[in-house]
Design a protein around this nucleic acid. Structure first.
Lengths: 336, 336
DNA sequence: CTGAAAGCGCTAACAG
DNA sequence: CTGTTAGCGCTTTCAG
């Protein structure tokens, strides 16, 4: 299985000391042009790549950044991961991704594994861990949180303006003439779910409208949850002309329930999501939603992590969402 | 930032030598019960976790398994990744995932990065690299290929019976009475795309049917490709009552084209996919497809990789697909 | 059964 | 500008 080339071999072949090779590799110091050329030639010829484990051990850095994501097969987090991967691509760092499966213990364990692997920084995508466990963690390792607020660490948070997003949605629906709403929320333990819901309720209030508590159901941000929540909504027997979901995934689930119930979208009920996941434009009909530049958010998260590693302070980002009107919304039908 | 505990500290506190601690950690040799107990207590108290970089360097293994996936935000590969992660969970190994973005150079580079990181094995999910580049690679590092055939390495391949899957689909459609088909294929360079297409064509032939070449379009296995291919199909003006897609993602894209064209599914045209990606049951209408136990496939891939690392030979797996009849297929309408 | 000693491949002072 | 010298934290002979 072919022994890999080592730095020592390169040094020998090039007739220089290992340190010189190391310096060239890392740009740690200036090296005489002729030696540099010679060494680089040998590196190329031998196709030498430094052993990261050795670099990690000697350098005291693992050159890896841990990423905790709720799920590996989520269209939403997947895009963020792609952004993170892309942003790290031209750096010596690489991501190590572990999923938390939406379970607190798994998330905690993911963090433990990452720390045991001595990652140099960690990026948290969403997640349900308490602020109380995150704050001490941030003392031990540079940390960036995405899509969630961590009290006391707001500079390390990359969030979106959930309230604005929801106001955009509500405004659109109100403009269309809707007055009877139903709402499917994310879980209460997630700060963005709470923000979205409160913003929505606020809009209704401002419009002088109210919503019966039964017409608010929680769907855990997942497709199945949305599907079931929509069913519960229908079961109340209370009328509504617009169903707003706190994310696209739940809207997708809700769409199926509506389909099964023989309700047409948008003719019988308008449907909205939140996030603009890649598949939302492919729904039947394409979903009206609010766009989070989730790929870009991933990129920013990686960049902030890099800044932290560089000793610079992290900078809070607030992304501005954008209304994407597609075909799942229309004026309400006049009642028969 | 809190210095991590080292093995040497543990040894000192427990009053034994570092080697003894190492032996206990790895079960490399028997250790007197009293020392073992003492050491384990110290490990627990100090919450010691060995530094993987150091283990890697000293042990000559990185304890990591490289995974190359075409995409990080694919419902299909995402499930496989979840399976791999789960299977590796209770082993000392952990996955390092890099995406190839469906581009040969990126895939090649992903492999290079993985080799540079000295992964102990690599798992290839699908991918478009030539057999010619994979064969020599397998000499350098234990390798498992998922969902694709590599000539000369069939024992290292985990595949599904694509022909059977397509026969299931074709049989279902034929039974419903369909005689006029259109087909959206994956790219020719992917062996499974070819297998599926050939199987489909074979079924038609066996049924004494033929298909006009214009009614076969390629969609690259992606949503957008499916959407565009479907449009091209419609543009031919040739009639078809069933549209079979070589995977679910393209079926999703095709669904949108059909919707835009005002064609109802399944009333005007029956639509089928392949894979049974998680979102397919949520389509409107839910998609008839063929199920690949993709999560399980991921698990098997990881297990085979582990076997390879254990010095055992890999064993070829052929997964059997299963027809999932949902609501996107129905008998063809009698022509107006 | 157990300790001492020698590295794994690389980086980082420290002298020149 | 560059070579020498120590390690980084752990595993693994090699003696005992």
């Amino acid at each position: 299985m072919l022994e890999p080339v080592t730095l020592a071999q390169v040094a020998r072949e090039a007739g220089v000391s290992p340190s010189t090779v190391s310096r060239i590799l890392n740009g740690t110091a200036n090296v005489a042009p002729d030696k540099r050329v010679r060494v680089e030639a040998v590196i190329a010829r031998l196709n030498f790549r430094p052993n990261p484990q050795a670099q990690a051990l000697a350098g005291g850095r693992s050159l890896s950044i841990g990423v905790v994501t709720p799920s590996l097969h989520s269209t939403f987090y997947g895009e963020a991961l792609t952004g993170i991967e892309a942003a790290l691509n031209d750096t010596p760092y690489h991501p190590i991704v572990i999923s938390g499966q939406w379970r607190t213990e798994r998330e905690q364990e993911a963090l433990n594994v990452l720390l045991a692997r001595r990652v140099d920084a960690v990026i948290l995508l969403g997640g349900i861990l308490d602020d109380e466990v995150l704050r001490p963690l941030a003392q031990r390792v540079p940390m960036i949180a995405v899509g969630r607020e961590v009290q006391g660490l707001s500079d390390s948070c990359i969030v979106m303006d959930n309230a604005l997003g929801m106001r955009l949605i509500a405004g659109h629906l109100l403009d269309l003439g809707h007055r009877e709403f139903a709402y499917i929320s994310g879980a209460e333990r997630q700060s963005d779910a709470v923000e979205r819901k409160n913003a929505f309720l606020g809009c209704l209030q401002d419009a002088g409208l109210s919503i019966h508590p039964d017409l608010i159901q929680v769907g855990q941000y997942l497709e199945d949850g949305g599907q079931q929540a929509a069913q519960r909504l229908l079961d109340t027997g209370r009328p509504f002309t617009a169903l707003v979901c706190a994310n696209d995934q739940m809207a997708l689930g809700a769409r199926l329930t509506l389909y099964r119930a023989g309700l047409r979208v948008p003719d019988d009920v308008s449907l909205t999501g939140f996030d603009d996941v890649v598949t939302s434009r492919l729904m039947t009909p394409p979903l009206t939603t609010v766009r989070q530049a989730i790929y870009d958010i991933g990129v920013s998260a990686a960049q902030e992590a890099l800044k932290l590693l560089d000793g610079q302070p992290a900078q809070r980002h607030v992304f501005t969402p954008e209304l994407v009107i597609r075909e799942s919304t229309a004026p309400p039908r006049s009642r028969p």
